[in-house]
Structures are given as C-alpha cells and as structure tokens.
C-alpha cells in the first residue's frame, strides 16, 4: 500500500510539474508575441544575456567545437571506412552529426554554463525579495526577467549550434581528405546530396525549442525559492534535473518527427 501511495504521489507530482511548466510556457509565449514586452529595459537585459551566454564563451566554445568535431568526425569516418560503408559518410555526417549531435552537444554546453546560472540568479533574487521590489515598481517579471532570457536561449542555441555544425563540416572536409583521400569537389557534392532543407529546418527548430526550455525551466524552478537561503541549492538542483529530462524528451520527440 505504501509503495503504491508513493508511486501515485510521484506520478501526480510529475504530471503537476509538467502541467505547470506548460501553463508557464503558454504565458511566456504570449508575452514573447506581445510587442509591449520589448521595452528598452528588456532589450538591455537581452543584450547582457547574449553577451554572457554566447559572446563571452565564444573562444572556448569554438575551441571545444574543433576538438569535439574532430573527434566525432574522425571516429565516425574511420568506423565507416572499416565497415566498408564509406559511401554513406555524407548521410552520417549530415543526418547524425550535424542535425542530431551538434544541437545536443551545444545544448549541453549551454545548459552547463547558463541554465545553472539563471536558476541560481532567479532563486537568489526571489530569496532576497528583489522580485517583490521589481513588482512594487510595477515591472512585469515575465517581461523583464523571462522574455529576454528565453529569447537569448533560443537565439544563442541556434547561432552556436550552427557554428558548431559549420566547424564540424570544416573538420569533415579535412578528415575526409586524410581518411578517404577525398577531394573538395567530391566532399561538397556528397554533402549537397546528403543535405535536405527539411532536416536543417527541423534541426534549427529543435535548437530553438532546446533554447526555450533550457532557460524556461531554470527560471521556473528559481521562482520556487523561498526566503530561506537553503532553498536556493535545492531549487537549482531540481531545476537542472528537469532541464536534462526536458533535453531527453525533446531529443526523442525530434527523432519521432524524423520517423514520420
């Protein structure tokens, strides 16, 4: 009985959590589409957020991209050559590495750097009653805190993931010449044949969805903090767990969309 009760509680908690997240998402999307949300203060926050999320980490991100890309492409190309499946390397490069692994690695990097920071920042603001202060000055929390962070998440994800993909393809060019002794023309032709705009579109949409949720969930969990400072690490921890769950769910959903 006790086990069943615990299971029921967990299920109800998960469903409630999902429901709350979707309700909050709806509210945020409505504000995203509202022109009044884009006042000067929101725009300033957006610039700051993009700066901290993308510009400040750009050199490290590009260095990591080169390392990851070389490793991934090298391993995959070598495996294809060993298995005698060299003719499929274009499809593997575009279908697996560029449209699947590239957004996934980017979202993991952004989650580790920005999502945790956003979660902690909002939790501290809530704990210090700074959010109350903003409300007393009639500043809409969704407009001022959520909208710029969400836009930054989506934009940064799309831009950084695209950069990662471009670095990947450049690595592919180099490694295909080394491993397959392939010329630039042949490599380009294979890439062109293996690429479809629908796949790119799906990948970009997926990046945007990743960006939306890896910022929305930390904000939502940050807002759950109480006056007690001890609530901050708890909310950060729960928020990050939920962010990773969301990443997995989005990945599965994107795979399903490719199947149909």
């Amino acid at each position: 009985m006790h086990g069943l009760e615990s299971t029921g509680k967990v299920i109800i908690s998960v469903v409630d959590n999902l429901h709350d997240t979707l309700i909050f998402s709806g509210k945020v999307v409505r504000r995203l589409l509202h022109p009044a949300a884009y006042n000067r203060a929101t725009r300033n926050v957006l610039v700051n957020q993009i700066y901290f999320t993308s510009v400040q980490i750009l050199p490290v991100f590009l260095a990591l991209s080169v390392v990851f890309a070389s490793l991934l492409v090298g391993i995959v190309f070598q495996s294809l050559k060993t298995l005698g499946l060299a003719e499929y390397f274009g499809h593997v490069l575009m279908g697996l590495i560029v449209t699947e692994l590239s957004p996934l690695l980017t979202v993991l990097l952004i989650t580790l750097r920005s999502s945790s920071a956003i979660n902690a920042e909002i939790a501290v603001m809530k704990s210090n009653r700074e959010l109350t202060a903003l409300e007393m000055f009639r500043i809409d929390l969704v407009d001022y805190l959520v909208v710029p962070r969400i836009i930054n998440g989506m934009l940064s994800m799309v831009l950084l993931s695209s950069l990662f993909s471009i670095v990947l393809m450049a690595s592919g060019l180099l490694l295909s010449a080394l491993i397959f002794d392939m010329s630039v023309d042949v490599y380009t032709n294979i890439l062109l044949n293996s690429t479809s705009f629908s796949a790119i579109f799906i990948a970009l949409v997926k990046c945007a969805v990743y960006g939306f949720f890896v910022t929305l969930i930390p904000i939502r969990f940050g807002l759950r903090a109480t006056r007690e400072l001890t609530s901050i690490p708890i909310t950060v921890s729960r928020g990050m767990v939920n962010v990773f769950a969301a990443i997995l769910i989005i990945e599965v959903l994107s795979l399903l969309t490719r199947l149909f």
Partner: peptide, 15 residues
C-alpha cells in the same frame, strides 16, 4: 501620482 516605495523590504537588485 504613482507610489514609489523606499524601504528595507524593497531592496536594490543585487546583480
């Protein structure tokens, strides 16, 4: 006129 509060419960934004 619009109310503009000043007090310990209306802190500055710390970051």
């Amino acid at each position: 006129e619009q109310t503009a509060p000043v007090g310990a419960d209306v802190p500055l934004i710390s970051n």
